[in-house]
Design a protein around this nucleic acid. Sequence first.
DNA 1: AACTCGGGGCA
DNA 2: TGCCCAGAGTT
Length: 217
Amino acid sequence: MPTKKESTPKKKERLSRIITELRQHYPEPRIALDYSSPFELLIATMLSAQCTDERVNQVTKALFKKYRSPNDYIAVPQEELEQDIFSTGFYKAKAKNIQSCCTRLLADFDGEVPQTLEELTSLAGVGRKTANVVLSHCFDIPGVVVDTHVTRLVNRMGIAEGEDAVKLEFALMKLMPSEVWRDFTHLMIMHGRAVCSARSKPKCAECPVAADCPKLL
DNA sequence: AACTCGGGGCA
DNA sequence: TGCCCAGAGTT
């Protein structure tokens, strides 16, 4: 069922309408990302792998009272950190990566969080997604975070095709209205959970952007 | 490109 | 019980 390819300007226009509508529908973006420092956001995002942001918030609430600096994370045995982040899953790998990451922050970056994609992804446990979250939300550097929600939704909405996260990232950067890249992922996630869901059937009857969805045309 | 780490939520 | 979750590293 190869539908005719939509032109880039049309896609841009449609994406812009979708985002405008979603912004009105989901009025409070970035709740889950309201951390007090780049370092806290970095740790929280590292913990978020294959784990909901609600759980990450729950865990970090206690975690950030106990650990306030890179030094605090490497001052405890790995097993202790594992217990403190246990319920986020993948706790052994995450604890190891966090300690390794903190060691390098102290050794190579004067204990601060670096501000380039290359430096961030050179840290243990920090990949493209985590790096883009930190860059876009802490340092106001344009970047599109491609996660499972974004991948699912842009495919369903016919904005971009495929599963390759890097390809989707570049495709979306070209289509993204310049003023919205910062909220894009959050809007996709809110919408993905509430309406355009992965597990249960999408609730298309309640969808605020159904008029722009090729699935329903 | 496929596989592994992994507890937790939800259908 | 089975599938999925604001991923990243290794082979």
